[in-house]
Nucleic acid binder design. Structure first.
Lengths: 115, 115
DNA sequence: CCAATAGTTCAAGATTAGTGAACAAATAGA
DNA sequence: TCTATTTGTTCACTAATCTTGAACTATTGG
């Protein structure tokens, strides 16, 4: 009956995380919003928490792709719990490698939103 | 004889410069290389200085597009002098608006290149 | 089991990127 | 004033990437 397979999620090791990958992932307004929300929250966030971003609906297939981009850029870690996915940031690892890169991106977006 | 027109170059005002535009522009390895070179040089750089980037040839139509992306993201200013274009960064203006965003991106790329 | 829920995959259309060839614009030299 | 040369832009076409509805997988609760 079923013939499609859901492949296990890929999380790149720190050595494979690149600046271009991070910048690309965060150059999309919806993706930064998602990332920023996960980063500032103290508990893991599930994907479907973002079916609306900035009052706009995000189709769930699109949302799935956004999470994949963030994950494969090395920005987040996704872990299945039951029927949901728990998403957390990998900001500590990235901080070790790239210093305050991600922090200054988030601050710049914050500044932009305030204007 | 001629029927195509070269439009004047557009430089967005500071108010139109966005974080997403900057991240997108700098998420391309060739473009950051160009930008970094312009930023660290004390004299304006001409476009054709980058017909080779990282030992690889860059077609000049492609190069023209890269400069356009950097320019329209607000990262550089291009001024024609004679037959050449002089390119300089707008890092001071951007710094006023977005703090150390661009600096930390360049540092992260530098770190990456050293590994 | 079955229904419900959360997320992924696929496929098709839309959008964007890369580039060779033709062109534009400026200049230097005759 | 031509003409050749140099630098960069524009166009048009192809390739690559993005978006998203529909179908599917996976897990759980009843």
């Amino acid at each position: 009956m079923y013939n499609k397979l859901v492949r296990p999620l890929y999380h790149p090791p720190l050595s494979e995380i690149t600046v271009e990958g991070i910048l690309y992932a965060l150059s999309d307004p919806v993706r930064v919003r998602i990332y920023a929300e996960i980063a500032q929250s103290d508990c893991p966030q599930i994907c479907s928490a973002f079916l609306q971003v900035d009052q706009r609906p995000v189709p769930k297939s699109t949302l799935s792709v956004h999470f994949k981009v963030l994950r494969e850029a090395g920005l987040i870690r996704s872990e299945r719990r039951g029927v949901e996915m728990l998403n957390t940031t990998r900001c500590q690892e990235i901080g070790e490698k790239f210093g305050d890169l991600v922090g200054s991106i988030l601050r710049a977006y914050q500044t932009q939103r305030e204007q």
